[in-house]
Simulated assay, not measured.
Amino acid sequence: MTSSAGVGFCFDRTFPPALVTDVARRLDAGGADRLWIIEDCFYTGGISLAAAALAVTERLNIGLGILPVVARNPAITAMELTTLIGLAPGRVLPGLGHGVQEWMEQMGVRAKSPLGAFEEVIDAVRRLLAGETVTTDGKYVRLTDVRLDPPPAEVPPLLAGVRGPKSLALAGKIAGGVVLAEPSTPSTVRLALDQAGRPEDFVVAVFSSVCVQEDRATAYQIMAPWLGTMIETRNPSLVPVPFFDELTALYDAKGTGALTGIPAEWWSEIGPIGTLADAAAHLDALEAEGVHHIGLFPLADVDLAMSQIDHVIALANR
């Protein structure tokens, strides 16, 4: 049975750019739903990688996760998105966010109100994609008689790549959906949708950290250092899991090695980690919470990441 949520693969910001066409072709041929392009400062660029992936595929969808709204003028963002949509109508799903504020500071574009800037940019981009002639004189967006020529024939929903209650509440009012960062768990999704106000026709995309191996022990051993980092930093996507305090106490007392022995049910909540059946159970749980798109996010090691593509394809076609 084909999965009800679209299952795809995340192309890490550190991967060699030339690898994107091979990954895209493999996913396209195998029947995966989507390749998610990860744009973070100051690594590879999302727009150019997305164009390369679209150019070598026939059916594969491309997600952008995410474009920081103040890094580009909103008119340029709308132009770039229109170009991608024109290259492959119906195959582009853009995510925009207010960006990591430290990075925005480095570029000299940090907004005094990230939420205010986010709202103004999303509004301007949405109106431009809809074919409007936009004139606005806001605190962060100033446009005079700007109109796309021509605007896209089909406009995808603009997804908000945000976290935190205020940002999610705003996303629920102004965006077409959300992109939730890894490690997205069913608990993370439930809380995020509550904070967004559970609006109608709201597209939910998530990134979920993946490691599928022949046996659970190997997968847990590979992912234990990663999980330790998530615990140490109190990653906002992990904190909502119901066992987070127990997990933290165990890690504080016994370190990374102890994480390999946590219950399989905990690992399955945290991500598609373990056997292929364990990963499928995680995806089923995300779908039950209303998730529409799942981007499986491998560790940054290229060889390990490439070994996951066949598993991603299997999960997409399960």
Rank of each mutant, 00 (worst) to 15 (best):
E214F: 04
D301T: 14
G295K: 07
R318Q: 07
A205S: 07
D284A: 15
T260G: 00
Y140W: 13
Q195Y: 04
E214Y: 08
A117C: 12
K112H: 13
G99V: 08
A196P: 01
E120D: 06
P236L: 03
L250A: 04
V203W: 08
L286K: 05
M306S: 10
M79R: 07
E154G: 14
S4L: 09
G177R: 09
P199M: 13
G95I: 06
Y43P: 01
D301R: 15
S48A: 12
C10M: 14
R126I: 02
K166W: 03
A280G: 04
C10V: 15
M306N: 10
P156L: 11
T14F: 15
V203S: 07
K173F: 11
G116L: 14
P16G: 12
G30I: 15
E269K: 06
P199H: 14
S307F: 10
V23L: 13
N235D: 03
V210A: 03
S3C: 07
C41D: 06
G31C: 15
L54R: 07
L227R: 00
R26A: 08
V239W: 05
G65V: 01
V23A: 13
V302H: 08
L247C: 02
G138T: 08
R91H: 10
P89Y: 10
T188S: 06
A169N: 12
A192V: 02
V212Y: 09
T233C: 01
Q308W: 13
L19A: 12
T144D: 05
T14M: 15
L299H: 12
G30N: 13
E102H: 15
P157G: 12
K173R: 15
L283K: 01
S208M: 05
G99P: 06
V210M: 10
L250D: 00
L296S: 06
A175Y: 03
V212L: 11
S209T: 12
V302A: 08
A171L: 05
L64T: 02
I309S: 11
P16I: 14
Q195L: 08
D33C: 13
A181L: 04
M306A: 05
Q195E: 06
W266N: 02
I62L: 08
I174T: 06
T260V: 12
G290A: 11
T83R: 04
G176I: 08
D215N: 11
H293R: 10
V23T: 13
A117Q: 07
Y140G: 05
V121A: 01
I270N: 02
I294P: 00
E265Q: 14
G290M: 09
G31I: 15
P186K: 14
I85T: 07
V141Q: 02
A29W: 15
N317H: 11
A5L: 04
G172E: 05
G97N: 04
S208V: 03
F297G: 02
L170A: 07
R59V: 13
D137Y: 11
D33N: 10
M107H: 15
L84Y: 04
A24T: 06
G30F: 15
S184E: 00
R59P: 11
N317T: 15
T256S: 05
D301N: 15
S167M: 09
